[in-house]
Design a binder for these strands. Structure first.
Lengths: 233, 233
DNA sequence: CATCTATAATAGTAATACTATCACCCACAC
DNA sequence: GTGTGGGTGATAGTATTACTATTATAGATG
């Protein structure tokens, strides 16, 4: 019933659809705030329940455990990113320009446009930067993958990989390049904030385009149009 | 007293130097086996203590908590990688060739040479692939960084970044490129094993050079020699 | 022989990650 | 209106985790 975009996620991510009830929406909204504030390790269902004036048991009726909740939030984010990318590229004919737009959106962690969701996108973006890798860096990754819990991320990567192939049909690593761009966008942003000696990227740049976008753009286009490519044996 | 390489680590990583006693070395050796087997989340000091026929309290005398132990293991790995890189490049004059060797070593997760350490390097390599990011993706990252706990990683990145600058002194993102290569090497390897639709990299390639090396090499050299670079505004 | 140190053994605490039970409220159907 | 079922709150309880504290002992050192 909520206005604005509606995002459908794999139903194996949850026990009860949190988007359908007041309590469910409160869980989503407040968990984003709490994970952003405490970090995923310190975040617990008990603390969440206290924040929303509900109980631990009620939260467990929506999500099997906090890992599934993280998977849900991250999937939601990739869906939302996909939506934004489509919105900004649907009438752009030039593949290079589409890729440029994609990178600009990918690297944009301080969001202006809200597209009317009840979730705090800026907070969620920060969570994705810090916690998204933990969604798959587990012993359950193969099981989760078999259940399709990474489908949104994989689809999005594939979509962009097709743009890369459009630019250079003989480039042999389109998916690897795109997944590297995804990971690098988050990591370089994180490094700029916390381990600045690992990167020239600066997090705080107003006015001009962020140099994260510049770094990723050059990395991508140089790789795609690379002259250093000898045919694969 | 152990033969072979000796690796000195920041003393803030531990409470008592685990390299100096039998129990300490047992902790290191067995924790690598256990984390590799269970994953970092399921790994506990209690389980470790049982494996080495000691007690939880004894383990706590060496490491403040399991996060510090992870930091120790990861730092040890970067030190060891640094050692290998120096060993294989110390008499190589050509910067491009040195970078090539670096990437080959970085991407080599199935190790043959053991360089006589009592630690299981192949097991540790797998841990680094899956768990290394968790060493800094925490709320304590700034504090840990202030205590110098990421110094080994940062030094290694800087060293390689200098090689990049040697190849192209005007390349504006040497550290960002190198840290991206580090992260991509691990992530692409992980994807090849668990989320293969995210990459063209194949984990199982005997005989010919792994295509992970090829992907990273092209990515690096294309970026460094990139013609797509307009001067920074 | 005295001393010091590392470790083992044991115990205990607070928090975490759940699971189970029961009572209640509300919407809807008959 | 009565019943039925679903969603929730309240409460309790368990096993495990992440530690901390205490004491005893065995071995090395002076």
């Amino acid at each position: 019933m909520s206005a604005g975009i509606r995002i459908e996620l794999n139903h194996k991510l949850y026990l009860r659809d949190p988007d359908q009830t007041d309590l469910g929406r409160a869980i989503l909204k407040e968990s984003i705030r709490l994970i952003d504030e405490l970090g995923f390790e310190q975040f617990t269902f008990k603390k969440l329940a206290q924040c929303i004036h509900s109980t631990e048991a009620s939260v467990y009726r929506y999500f099997e455990n906090k890992h599934k909740l993280l998977l849900y939030l991250v999937s939601w984010y990739w869906n939302w990113l996909d939506y934004r990318i489509c919105y900004h590229t649907h009438n752009v004919a030039d593949a290079a320009e589409r890729l440029r737009i994609f990178i600009r959106i990918l690297a944009q962690y301080q969001i202006k446009e809200q597209l009317s969701s009840y979730l705090d996108i800026e907070s969620l973006s920060r969570i994705v930067v810090v916690e998204a890798s933990k969604a798959y860096l587990t012993k359950e990754v193969d099981n989760d993958n078999n259940n399709g819990l990474f489908q949104d991320y994989k689809s999005l990567c594939h979509k962009i990989a097709m743009v890369v192939l459009e630019l250079n049909p003989s480039y042999p690593y389109p998916h690897a390049l795109v997944s590297t761009l995804f990971e690098a966008a988050r990591k370089q942003w994180f490094f700029s904030q916390h381990l600045p000696s690992l990167t020239e990227v600066k997090g705080t740049q107003q006015g001009q385009e962020s140099n994260l976008v510049q770094f990723l753009t050059h990395l991508a286009f140089d790789a795609i149009k690379g002259t250093n490519f000898s045919p694969v044996s």
